[in-house]
Simulated scan of single mutants.
Amino acid sequence: MAPSTRCVSVFQLSLLAGFALGLQITSPGGISIDKPSGGSVSLDCQFVLASGDSGPLDIEWSLVAPDNQENDQVVIMYSGDRTYEDYNPLMKGRVHFNSADPKNGDASISLTGLKSSDSGTYQCKVKKAPGIDNRKMILRVLVRPAKPRCHIEGPAEEGKDVVLKCTTSDGSQPLKYTWEKTSGSKTLPASAVLDPAGGTVIVKNASSSASGTYHCVVANSVGSEECTLQLNVAPPQNTAGIAAAVIISILLILIIIAIILFCLWRARNKKKYEKEICNEIREDVPPPTSRASMARSFTVGSQRSSLGSMSPSNIPEFHIKSQYGKVPLSEEFERPPSHNPAPPPPRCPGWLGPTSAAWAASPS
């Protein structure tokens, strides 16, 4: 072996020995941790120092930026025998070192009250000059599935496709849905088609045997929730009977409306007729002159002479003459009008004209 080759080999071995004897993080890196929101997580970072590491100890945890154009965000730091926890306002009060004295070889941290925004790649960097090392790990904060809702889409009738749906309002992907029948044969119908990702079960050409209680479970890597529904497959509806009932109902409504309109029309015509009758009475001829005034035109003597010359034997047609043809006697002239009241003429409601007043005052 040439001298130059021996020098290169010795140098490489010395470098490897120096790295082997320097600071090392013993915790595994490149791992992925899934945790539910609201929970807590411990990010492990154990390290050992070499005898040659004599500088000050610095520990830094940071959230690696997903874009190389951005800077990593410091989460917590230990430097100069002092802990600094307020670098990230979103994690203030939620992140701590597990050890009260991290320089003893435990740089692990705990993060509580996990949120979706805590997800990302975390890096633990430990430095004690001349030694330095780092490890990365991925944290995924997942949301537990919310309580799902089980329901039936469309009519559940024999001979039709019945769709069973299971939906949840929240939950981190991927979500997996499973269905089972918990009554009867406790197996899904042979014609059922299950969609594990969408949470749908389609029972094709459903029959009465598909009726029963169904159970759905939605789950992800951090939790699960469930719901149930009752399926009752009914015989097909009599559409002809329903249509006939609707038509009959419409006809009855039209008949009732027609009767109401007819009654209103008849009442209006009756009111119009009564009004016309009242107008005819108002336009009647004036009442005849009072008989009392006619009687005063005769003198007592002329009455006697006239009555003396007139007798039933001389007047053969006397018996057929109207009572209005009689000459009133003197007693009748003296009789007050109130003794012979005249029948009142027909009146219209709410009207009393001068003609009717004259009729009411005249004697018979």
Rank of each mutant, 00 (worst) to 15 (best):
S79R: 14
S79H: 11
S79Q: 13
G80H: 12
D81F: 14
T83Q: 13
E85R: 07
D86V: 12
Y87D: 07
Y87P: 02
N88V: 08
P89W: 11
L90M: 10
L90Y: 09
L90F: 08
M91V: 12
K92V: 13
K92S: 15
R94M: 11
V95G: 09
H96A: 13
F97G: 06
S99F: 05
D101G: 01
P102G: 05
K103Q: 10
K103M: 03
G105A: 01
D106M: 05
D106C: 04
A107P: 04
S108E: 03
I109S: 04
S110H: 09
S110Q: 11
S110I: 07
T112H: 04
G113F: 07
G113C: 06
L114Y: 12
L114V: 14
L114A: 08
K115Q: 15
K115W: 11
K115G: 15
K115R: 15
S116V: 15
S116D: 13
S116T: 15
S117H: 10
S119A: 13
G120Y: 09
G120A: 09
T121R: 10
T121Y: 03
Q123F: 00
Q123S: 07
Q123L: 04
Q123M: 05
C124E: 03
C124K: 01
K127C: 01
A129N: 04
A129S: 10
G131W: 02
G131N: 02
I132C: 03
I132M: 09
N134G: 01
K136V: 05
M137G: 02
M137W: 00
I138M: 05
I138C: 00
L139D: 06
R140C: 02
R140P: 00
V141P: 05
L142K: 15
L142W: 08
R144N: 14
